[in-house]
Design a protein around this nucleic acid. Sequence first.
DNA 1: TTCTTATGCATAAGAAAATTATGTATATAT
DNA 2: ATATATACATAATTTTCTTATGCATAAGAA
Lengths: 112, 112
Amino acid sequence: MGNSKLYKGSLNTIILKLLEEKGKMYGYEITQKVKELTKGELKITEGALYPALHKLEAEGLLDVEVAKVDNRLRKYYKLTEAGEKETVNRLAELEEFIRSMQNLVNPKWSIE
Amino acid sequence: MGNSKLYKGSLNTIILKLLEEKGKMYGYEITQKVKELTKGELKITEGALYPALHKLEAEGLLDVEVAKVDNRLRKYYKLTEAGEKETVNRLAELEEFIRSMQNLVNPKWSIE
DNA sequence: TTCTTATGCATAAGAAAATTATGTATATAT
DNA sequence: ATATATACATAATTTTCTTATGCATAAGAA
């Protein structure tokens, strides 16, 4: 299972990006969304996700809001103001990184 | 200095790809080439590079050839046959990963 | 009705893969 | 002389993941 050892370092940015898009999401929802968007190629494990969410919250980039749906707990996360600013920066960095990787891996692509 | 925390996991593939292109390269040359190709954005540190080269060699994917140029040591690495095969696989995996990341970060790009 | 799968959170132990800090040595430019 | 560039290497530490485990409810299958 889960053999995507390549996304190391980009998990935080992925989380921020999704929250920027959707407004608010809860942990399990994020794992499912990523699986869906990448056609199952990228699987966010809970062991990676929850600590990452807690850290982003501790850094003041996320706010939490607890809800109970169908008698089950959900923790909805959304960007703080600081989080919105950081998201812009980190996304730019990630996009630049992706471009660099393309340049390395397949220079032809980036000519156009 | 070196603030590219994003390429984690892809160093091995980058090395293999460069060797596939250039035939043979030595460590220091690889660091400079990557810096050049990414316009300074990606800096391979020696602490990451040399262990990676040694590991790829131990796995039978690389061959070494020592040379002395200007009284300085150089260790030229090149792909073994097994290394050439692995390079194809790992490049495909990395390209697929890059596509996934694009899909997450900027879905618009990947429609075309 | 029992068992599995899905939903939902969390943390601890361990592994992988980097960074940072050293160390050695020669060559070149200031 | 001194700093920078070239060239290799490794140890200590940190970051960031995977794997394993734990708790709990809901829904569907057997």
